[in-house]
Computed example of a mutant assay.
Amino acid sequence: MLEDLMQQFEAASASYAADNGLERDDDWFVLKLQEEMGELIQIWNRVTGRGRRKGMTETELATALADETADVLGHVLLFAHRNGLDLAAAVERKWYFQPRET
C-alpha cells in the first residue's frame, strides 16, 4: 500500500518539477519536507489561536490543515522513496504492528 502511494507521489512530484524547471536533488527532498512542516505549523498556529487567521473560516482552516498534513505525508513518502527506505517495514518495526520476538 505505501509503495503504491509513494509511486503516485513520485509521479506527481516529478511532473511538477519538470513543468516548473526544478531540480530534485538529494537535498531538495529533505528541504521540501522541512518547508512543508513549516507550513503545517503555520496553519496549526492559526487553528489553535496562536496565529492570525487572516479571515479564514473554521471550514477553511480545517481544509488547510488537512491539505498541509497531506503535503507533509507526501514529502515523507518522497524522501523515503528517494533514499530507498523500506518505510512499510520500518513502520511495522517502530510502531510494533507485528508481534515482537522474545
Rank of each mutant, 00 (worst) to 15 (best):
L61S: 04
M37H: 03
N45I: 04
E68N: 06
L33D: 02
R82K: 15
A66D: 12
A90T: 09
W28I: 03
F97N: 05
A70R: 09
L73C: 08
G51T: 01
T102E: 04
F79G: 02
L85P: 09
Y96N: 12
G21D: 08
D67I: 05
D19W: 04
V76T: 08
G84M: 10
S15D: 14
T57S: 15
M37W: 02
V91D: 12
L22G: 01
K32L: 02
L73R: 14
L65V: 06
Q42S: 13
R100S: 09
T69G: 11
M6C: 06
G84T: 02
A17S: 11
D19E: 15
G51F: 05
D26M: 07
T59E: 12
I43H: 02
D25G: 04
E68H: 06
D71E: 12
L33Q: 04
A66W: 08
V47W: 04
D26S: 11
K94V: 03
R93L: 07
W28T: 03
D19N: 14
A17H: 15
E92G: 14
D71Q: 13
V91K: 07
T48A: 07
M37V: 01
Q8F: 03
L2P: 00
T59P: 00
E39I: 00
Q7E: 08
G55N: 12
E101S: 06
H75E: 12
T102L: 07
R53N: 08
M6A: 09
M37L: 14
M1G: 09
A14K: 11
V91Y: 07
V30K: 10
W28S: 00
R93K: 15
F29I: 01
K94R: 13
R46N: 08
N45L: 10
R100T: 01
L73K: 11
V91L: 14
A12V: 03
Y16K: 12
D71I: 04
W95P: 00
K54R: 15
K54Y: 13
M6F: 03
G21R: 07
E10Y: 11
L31P: 01
I43G: 00
T102F: 05
E23W: 01
A66T: 11
D27A: 10
S13F: 06
A17L: 06
M56Q: 14
I41T: 10
A62G: 08
D71W: 04
T63H: 09
E92I: 02
T69I: 00
G49H: 09
A88Q: 15
N83K: 14
H75P: 03
V47D: 00
